[in-house]
């Protein structure tokens, strides 16, 4: 353990290092750059031979994560192509045209890319259940697979499901620009407002990569 040493804290730290290191200072092995012993600045060393750094090039071929094309949630018997969704004229997120097809919000990250990817699906329509009819009841741990255009698949695990009034939708938490490669699944839930023909709440499943 460390004994009591007086003086500024960082100097105490240095002294501690010196206690162990000092006696071993002369036992060095030889590795990359030239071993030095004289104190103080010196002129630049004479470098000989081909300069490795002359070959250096920064990478310029950025390969983006492929577009998502299909959603699979085996536990909920969900399988769907993915429609690409943008914004409506009032700034709200667009929703899939077909209640049996899920959609990916294309102005956000692609699934598996840093940041929260968002996939939306209808809970129902006037004709019957939609693609996300059973999302609200999905157990924590449910696996969600997203197939991508390059043939790859990224798998997520649902960690939490919440239901929130639409007028208190947590935009920050669902769409926010962080660099965590997460997935959010969004549908409707809660009470149905018959006068407006829509649900009062949204159900949000938060998922992390497996």
């Amino acid at each position: 353990m460390v004994g009591e040493v007086s003086g500024p804290a960082y100097l105490r730290g240095l002294l501690l290092l010196a206690l162990v290191a000092g006696g071993l200072a002369g036992l060095a092995g030889a590795q990359p750059s030239g071993a030095l012993s004289a104190p103080g600045p010196e002129p630049a060393p004479q470098v000989t031979g081909p300069i490795a750094a002359d070959r250096f090039r920064s990478e310029s071929d950025y390969a983006e994560v492929a577009l998502p094309v299909r959603l699979r949630i085996p536990e909920l018997r969900v399988q769907s192509e993915l429609e690409r969704l943008g914004l409506q004229s009032d700034g709200a997120v667009a929703v899939p045209k077909d209640p049996h097809v899920a959609g990916w919000y294309e102005h956000g990250p692609r699934p598996g890319q840093p940041g929260p990817a968002v996939i939306l699906g209808h809970v129902d329509s006037k004709a019957g259940p939609g693609i996300f009819a059973s999302l609200a009841g999905a157990p924590v741990g449910t696996q969600v697979r997203v197939d991508r255009a390059d043939g790859s698949t990224v798998t997520f695990r649902i960690t939490r499901i919440s239901r929130v009034p639409k007028d208190e939708f947590p935009t920050d938490l669902v769409y926010a620009p962080t660099l965590d490669a997460t997935l959010r699944l969004v549908t409707c839930g809660g009470g149905f407002d018959r006068s407006r023909g829509s649900y009062r709440d949204n159900v949000i499943a938060y998922a992390e990569p497996v």
Partner: peptide, 15 residues
Amino acid sequence: GGAQTGYGGLVTGGR
């Protein structure tokens, strides 16, 4: 705001 992802009123509840 939220998403209009349901029109049927067939489902109630959820978490």
